[in-house]
């Protein structure tokens, strides 16, 4: 029966290197259509910048990729699986930390939570988990604050810790939602240098509204305003920005 069916119909072979494959994905909250037939393929090893205006659907698209929402139409696969099943292979850095800053927890223990789900049946974290935390904190240059309470960090330190929490599960795909929205420009540059290094071993998708800044780091930019407006490896020029933001934005392009 099974073999008969597979003889009848040959499924289109997905390119083996697709980390994210969105085919005509749409999403609506009630009657409000937030995403309209978005088709996008992200290949292994890419560093994709997802830009667009506020309320342009960037965060919604991320939630679809993370399996926190389901598309109302279209097909979405992440790492060759439905998003919910691929979750444990994704590292995620949210725009705002969802936790209370006065929560009694140290940096190291917060990062340990990124190891949940790797061996969910164990009652305690293993020495391997703790070693992974050390490695991740080393990678984001935050080893020295490992024992510090999470409430006593600066904005830049907190962003590094959130990044370490995402890295500690050794993800194949790293997703960051406006990772530098709340920190100053110098640290923003340091974080993107770090991402560029990480890109050597993982695919990265970073959401930003600062198209000019990220174009110096990413390998490709996708612009989202309800639907995919541009999709290019080229320099972003004025026409695209006009199309994306609806009006001419001046002085946004400066070279890096």
């Amino acid at each position: 029966m099974v073999s008969a069916m597979s003889n009848l119909e040959i499924p289109p072979l997905p390119s083996p290197d697709a980390v994210i494959r969105a085919e005509a994905v749409s999403f609506s909250y009630d009657t409000l259509r937030v995403l309209d037939t978005v088709t996008l393929e992200v290949l292994r090893g890419e560093f994709l910048g997802l830009v667009g205006p506020n309320a342009g659907g960037k965060s919604t698209f991320l939630k679809l990729i993370l399996g926190l929402l389901d598309p109302t139409a279209g097909r979405l696969q992440v790492l060759g699986q439905p998003p919910k099943q691929a979750r444990h292979r994704i590292g995620y850095v949210p725009q705002h930390p969802a936790f209370a800053r006065d929560f009694p927890i140290t940096v190291a223990d917060a990062v340990l939570m990124g190891r949940l789900g790797t061996r969910s049946l164990m009652l305690r974290y293993s020495p391997a988990d703790r070693a992974a935390v050390q490695k991740a904190l080393h990678e984001v240059e935050a080893e020295d604050i490992a024992r510090r309470p999470i409430g006593k960090l600066s904005g830049g330190q907190l962003q590094r810790v959130l990044l370490a929490r995402a890295l500690v599960s050794e993800p194949e795909l790293l997703i960051l939602d406006e990772p530098t929205a709340n920190i100053d420009h110098r640290i923003e540059g340091e974080i993107f240098e770090l991402l560029a290094e990480l890109n050597a071993r993982m695919t990265i998708l970073v959401v930003s509204h600062d198209i000019a800044f990220i174009s110096g780091y990413v390998s490709r930019v996708a612009c989202l305003n309800r639907t995919l407006v541009c999709h290019t490896t080229d320099r972003i020029d004025g026409t695209v920005i006009t199309e994306l933001y609806g009006e001419r934005v001046r002085g946004i392009l400066h070279d890096h």
Binding site: L66, L68, R87, H88, I90, Y92, P94, P97, A98, F99, F103, I105, A110, M113, G114, L116, G117, S120, L123, R124, Y125, R165, S169
Partner: peptide, 20 residues
């Protein structure tokens, strides 16, 4: 379930993404 309870208390969204 200490680890899982702490994760839910700390950050529900992240815990959900880790399969809790």
């Amino acid at each position: 379930f200490y680890r899982q309870f702490v994760a839910v208390a700390f950050d529900e969204e992240f815990a959900r993404l880790r399969g809790v």
